[in-house]
Design a protein around this nucleic acid. Structure first.
Length: 495
RNA sequence: GCCCCCAUCGUCUAGCGGCCUAGGACACCGCCCUUUCACGGCGGGUACGCCGGUUCGAAUCCGGUUGGGGGUGCCA
């Protein structure tokens, strides 16, 4: 089976075709990203199609999650939900007529046959025959009219099966090279249910053909369904539905802990959770791109634009990759550091609102304070949502201010009281309330006065005033907090 | 069981027959910077699964083996 060269053939058209079942998985994001990058690199078209043929499992909630996710990530599609396109509709649940037509034409040309067997019957026959091969045995391939009548009289309704050809099916996988299956191991498969509902096996290739998809980049889990799709494609070409067989590329799995596929049970599998925790889309995408692809030998932080520029599906490796949350965090942090303080402020604002740090809409006073405070925290947070914990103490009302009990226990004990008292005295006497003056005063009172090491000196003050052991720089924080509130909190800590 | 895929540091990878006493990143361990945290700097350990073959020469090519993964549905 010859393949075409992606660099010289017709314009690239790729697709991502998720089933809206459950919460979207990071593996889906990786697949979407590679398809998107491939399309953009080649100036092609990225099609977004919803595979909702399984009515039992598809949900609207899942669908809107997937769309939200794609919007958040900035992986824009040229055809699909909300944007339409020349091959609309892009929901398989609305394309029943096309599948019915394809099925009828396939039947007319004898590429299929009606099968009345139950799964149990087929399995029993395989077992009795001592066959090594699993799956359907082709029993109904050559049924006589009498046999059909008997089954029908028995009340049986047939599924439609595709007649797999003899021989072998080989294709040049874009990421794995030549892959070959003997068709004796690829049983005749069902194209639709006995009730007439079309199945993935039919619908997916038919839509790819109708939508003129040129390259199918998908998960490795679909590798073994490729020979039957290629066989179906041959039939679709003969009946005029397909013009060419697409190229296939099977992306490696994204694995979880141990040696299993990252499953929905793993918390790090849920893609939208990254948005909610304040990861940057460019950070998550960058990390996911690293799972199977490298932009250069000595570099792993890059922008989407750079990825588009450099992406080549042939550089994708075939081995499964373990998802490493720590590295994901590190890559995200690297992208955070690439942003200006203003940009981080802008992006963190929804989180500050969500967490009740600032009101929505933001008051002028809060906006001003935020502008002064954000430079202090922008460089020390690795996810946007962390801004809330860092900044909360500045915005909270005095009567709602609380000190973390654990941190208080560690920093403010018997030994902390004199420190706080000395701090209070020094700060209360300060003529000007500025970072420099505060630093000088505390330095003099605690380090020189009490003979403390800096880390022991400022710890209790930090906890008393910010409520936590971890905070923005102390002296700046005190300045922003203001004299009254700072002294008030010190007093409170003193009991 | 059968079919298919995969195989370099703990993890993600670079490597496409000599530039490899195997490079980068994350993680880890020291040290430095330091008011916490984060950042930054310096240094360190750790990998070509195994056995054959091809070759003057193999992490790179071939075969086998072992190990891992996936598939084997009227799911996708």
């Amino acid at each position: 089976m010859s393949t075409t060269d992606p660099t010289t053939s017709a314009p690239v058209r790729v697709r991502m075709a998720p089933s809206p079942t459950g919460s979207p998985h990071v593996g889906l994001v990786r697949t979407a990203l590679f398809n998107w990058a491939f399309a953009r690199h080649h100036g092609g078209t990225f099609v977004f199609r919803i595979e909702d043929t399984d009515k039992e499992r598809s949900t609207d909630e899942s669908l809107s999650s997937i769309i939200d996710l794609m919007r958040w990530l900035g992986l824009d599609w040229d055809e699909g939900p909300e944007v339409g396109g020349p091959h609309a509709p892009y929901f398989q649940s609305e394309r029943g007529d096309k599948y019915a037509d394809a099925l009828a034409r396939l039947k007319d040309s004898s590429f299929t046959y009606d099968c009345y067997c139950t799964t149990d019957e087929a399995t029993a026959r395989r077992k009795a025959a001592g066959s090594k091969v699993q799956g359907y045995d082709g029993f109904c391939r050559e049924l006589t009219a009498e046999q059909v009548a008997a089954f029908e009289a028995d009340g049986r309704r047939p599924v439609v099966r595709f007649r797999m050809p003899d021989g072998s099916i080989t294709w040049n996988d874009l990421v794995r090279g030549e892959v070959s299956f003997e068709t004796e191991f690829v049983p005749d498969f069902a194209l639709c249910r006995a009730n007439g509902d079309p199945l993935y096996t039919l619908v997916n290739p038919v839509d790819d053909a109708l939508m003129e998809i040129t390259h199918v980049l998908r998960g490795e889990d679909l590798l073994s369904s490729t020979p039957r799709q290629i066989a179906l494609y041959e039939a679709l070409k003969e009946i005029g539905i397909a013009t060419a067989t697409p190229e296939f590329g099977h992306l490696p799995y994204v694995m979880g802990e141990g040696n299993k596929k990252l499953s929905k049970r793993d918390p790090e599998a849920h893609a939208l959770a990254y948005r909610d925790q304040g990861y940057l889309p460019e950070g998550l995408l960058n990390y996911l791109a690293l799972l199977g692809w490298a932009i250069a030998a000595d570099r792993d932080v890059f922008s989407l634009e750079e990825m588009v520029e450099a992406f080549d599906i042939k550089d994708v490796v075939a081995n499964p990759a373990r998802f490493d949350l720590k590295k994901c965090d590190a890559i995200n942090a690297a992208h955070m550091r690439l942003l200006s303080t203003d940009e981080i402020t802008h992006r963190a604002l929804p989180f500050l609102k969500r967490d009740g740090v600032v009101a929505d809409p933001v008051t002028d006073a809060d906006a001003q304070l935020l502008e002064l405070a954000m430079p202090l925290v922008a460089e020390r947070i690795n996810k946007l949502a962390e801004a809330s914990a860092m900044l909360g103490f500045l915005f909270v009302d005095e009567d709602a201010f609380t000190v973390d009990p654990e941190d208080a226990a560690k920093q403010i004990g018997e030994s902390g009281i004199p420190v706080l008292q000395a701090s209070y005295d020094a700060l209360a006497a300060l003529p000007t309330w500025s970072t420099d003056a505060i630093q000088a005063a505390l330095q003099a009172a605690l380090v020189e006065g009490l003979g403390l090491k800096p880390r022991n000196a400022f710890g209790p003050v930090r906890v008393a005033v910010t409520g936590k052991r971890i905070s923005p720089p102390l002296f700046e924080s005190l300045e922003l907090l203001g004299r009254d509130r700072s002294l008030g909190r010190l007093q409170r800590a003193l009991g």
